[in-house]
């Protein structure tokens, strides 16, 4: 993320961001936060009745219902909880193509603000072949400056290994939370194992795939010498190969989308040239935001 990007946004931008709230669908454990869960909690907001099971707190038994129905029911209340937000940022060299990394950094900064202003704990981690470094999850807007400084120092390096990096992340002693994965997801070794590992750790995953225009429409007019951004290979192709490449990319995208749908991973693909405002206030609504 360049220094002149998020920090230079005007006040109205941040005000608009304040109206956004991260969408969390799974229960989470933790301190009080903006999300209401169906767990019996400290909230005064009634949720529903359910049958009494031995061990339930007698204080929540509805005696009026017992008088009428001769059966024991307990009241269930919503409980307001917060949930840790982990932003995983791909910094492999493929993210340097078409300034995807810079774009992802800006997006990560904005998401961090949205998480922190709701009193959530937000942490940012970068990965390539392995998990590289990160800012541990903390709450409070004062944490935002640390995140911004971290994001401003991002540099692309190394090859991508989604599975290894995500497994490594899963092994960290972290509370389960909302994992926002910002990556181009272009890993020849696949992504399934890593994502499954996060699911096993009961993290809620939102996958935001960021692609560059060059990824979608390679600028090849006649013949071109293809050079892999991660220095995997190099060879020549003709312009006729572009269409076949696009077909394979589409298949790859379809399989990724199907995998996410199957495993209830929220998924969105973005192009790195799309204005950030439109992404935040339009595209990610219903996916990442309420």
């Amino acid at each position: 993320m360049s220094r002149s990007s998020l920090r230079k946004r005007d006040e109205s931008f941040w005000k608009r961001l304040s109206a956004l709230q991260l969408l969390v669908r799974h229960r989470a454990e933790g301190q009080a936060g903006p999300w209401t869960t169906r767990r019996v909690g400290m909230s005064l907001e009634f949720a529903e009745y359910r049958e009494y099971y031995p061990g339930d707190d007698f204080r929540y038994v509805d005696w009026n219902l017992y008088g009428r129905l001769d059966r024991l029911f307990v009241k269930v209340f919503h409980r307001e909880e917060n949930i840790p937000v982990y932003i995983l940022l791909d910094t492999s060299r493929s993210m340097a193509v078409g300034e995807k990394l810079s774009y992802a950094g800006e997006l990560a900064g904005a998401l961090s603000y949205i998480g922190l202003k709701d009193m959530n704990r937000v942490g940012v981690f970068t990965f390539a072949r392995t998990l590289i470094q990160g800012v541990p999850a903390r709450s409070g807007l004062s944490h935002l400056q640390k995140i911004f400084s971290f994001l401003e120092g991002l540099q692309p390096n190394d090859q991508t290994s989604l599975s290894a990096a995500l497994e490594e992340f899963g092994k960290l002693p972290l509370r389960r939370g909302l994992v926002i994965l910002l990556s181009d997801m272009l890993d020849p070794a696949g992504y399934e194992q890593g994502l499954l590992h996060l699911l096993i750790k009961r993290h809620e995953i939102v996958l935001v795939q960021i692609l560059a225009p060059e990824d979608l429409e390679p600028p090849i007019e006649y013949e071109a010498r293809l050079v892999d951004s991660e220095e995997l290979a190099e060879f020549s192709v003709s312009a006729g190969a572009v269409a076949r490449y696009r077909q394979r990319l589409l298949q790859y995208e379809h399989s990724l989308e199907a995998f996410c749908r199957t495993h209830q991973i929220r998924y969105k693909v973005l192009v790195a040239t799309r204005p950030l405002e439109r992404v935040l206030f339009e595209d990610l609504r219903g996916v990442l935001f309420v």
Binding site: E223, V227, L232, E234, R244, Y245, R248
Partner: peptide, 29 residues
């Protein structure tokens, strides 16, 4: 030949049937 940096060269691998001769290259397109 234009050098193009791509994010995922493995998506192009099936196109690895080139190169053609230099003369053929010159007289195409």
């Amino acid at each position: 030949e234009e050098r193009v940096v791509v994010s995922a060269i493995w998506l192009w691998e099936e196109e690895h049937e080139r190169p053609r001769s230099a003369l053929t290259f010159l007289w195409t397109k």
